[in-house]
């Protein structure tokens, strides 16, 4: 497999804060990497360095084998980039804007027209084709940004929050589009939507405070936390604390942890050092103690749990 994106040891400081701290990342053709992390983790900053927009304090980035700083024209020719917030020239009609970007990327005449027509259809822009971009809804504006990044059919696609602001249908279409074009490209998408990563990404890279804290397939990430040694319990009671105190002696020495509170119910995690107790036995025991237990089951972590786990550990 050809490696199309290769970032090594990227570092960037802004004054006193280290935004990106030694991030390395390599992406092969056909891979879709989901780039995750809390707000301010350094996702956009990393992307800006890979695209050659922002010069790193140290480290290198290559696109299609070309160093983005030593050979910017060759590297950038292979790159399509959607910056955060999908910036565009508001006064320009969609068609003019895409045609401008296409020309800047070296497309001319028939080739340009073909690509424009394909973008109009594929990214579904036909309806708004001659409207000024500033008059479009957020979702359409984001799509113009995607079309702009795809116009020259680049090998490498770097998309910073491409589905931000899209409605569920458009999100779905966007994911389909990414899946469709994925086989021939290397794609990096940053997102805050974890289900998106599970549905379109072949790999998830999680960063926190500028450092890569996880890099694996979504399935492996979840699997790594799934050792079958934990049980989850859902309780619903306004006196959560006292209920938890009563549960403690009844679960056979498990370590107890509050995982999530939602709509008046609390999800508790019981961690065991080795084999967990039988869930039915626990359920019966708790019920007979008259505790407000709704559900007892083996804990199967979700990507969300993994995300929270790896990104909060550092602080």
């Amino acid at each position: 497999m050809t490696t199309l994106v290769e970032a090594r040891g990227l570092k960037k400081r802004f004054g006193d804060t280290t935004a990106v701290d030694d991030v390395s990342l390599s992406v092969s053709r056909g891979e879709v990497v989901g780039f995750l992390g809390p707000n301010g983790a350094g996702k956009s900053t990393t992307m800006k360095m890979i695209t050659g927009f922002l010069e790193p304090d140290s480290g290198t980035a290559q696109i299609g084998g070309h160093d983005v700083w030593r050979d910017p024209a060759a590297a950038k020719a292979k790159l399509g980039y959607l910056p955060e917030g999908a910036p565009a020239y508001g006064e320009m009609p969609v068609a003019d804007f895409l045609s401008f970007v296409g020309k800047m990327r070296g497309l001319r005449k028939a080739q340009l027209n073909n690509r424009l027509a394909e973008m109009a259809e594929r990214v579904r822009l036909t309806e708004v084709w001659s409207r000024p971009i500033e008059a479009l809804s957020k979702g359409y504006r984001r799509r113009v940004g995607i079309a702009q990044a795809l116009i020259h059919d680049p090998d490498v696609l770097i998309l910073d929050e491409p589905t931000d602001g899209l409605d569920p249908n458009q999100k779905h279409e966007m994911r389909n589009l990414i899946r469709e074009i994925a086989p021939n490209k290397s794609i990096i998408v940053s997102t805050h939507i974890l289900e998106e990563v599970e549905s379109v990404c072949s790999r998830a890279v999680i960063i926190a405070s500028g450092k890569v804290v996880a890099d694996a397939t979504p399935r492996d990430l979840v699997g790594s936390k799934d050792d079958g040694r934990a049980i989850q319990i859902r309780i619903s009671s306004p006196e959560e604390a006292s209920v938890i105190e009563k549960i403690k002696p009844l679960v056979g020495g498990a370590e107890l942890e509050v995982m999530e509170r939602m709509n008046g119910s609390t999800r508790l995690l019981l961690r065991y050092n080795d084999k967990p107790e039988d869930t039915h036995a626990i359920k019966t025991r708790l019920k007979s103690a008259d505790l407000p237990v709704e559900e007892v089951g083996i804990y199967r972590p979700r990507l969300e749990d993994v995300f929270r786990d790896v990104t909060t550990r550092i602080h």
Binding site: L79, P83, P87
Partner: peptide
Amino acid sequence: TIELLMTMP
């Protein structure tokens, strides 16, 4: 938009 301009080849 400078981010678009400056990432063009």
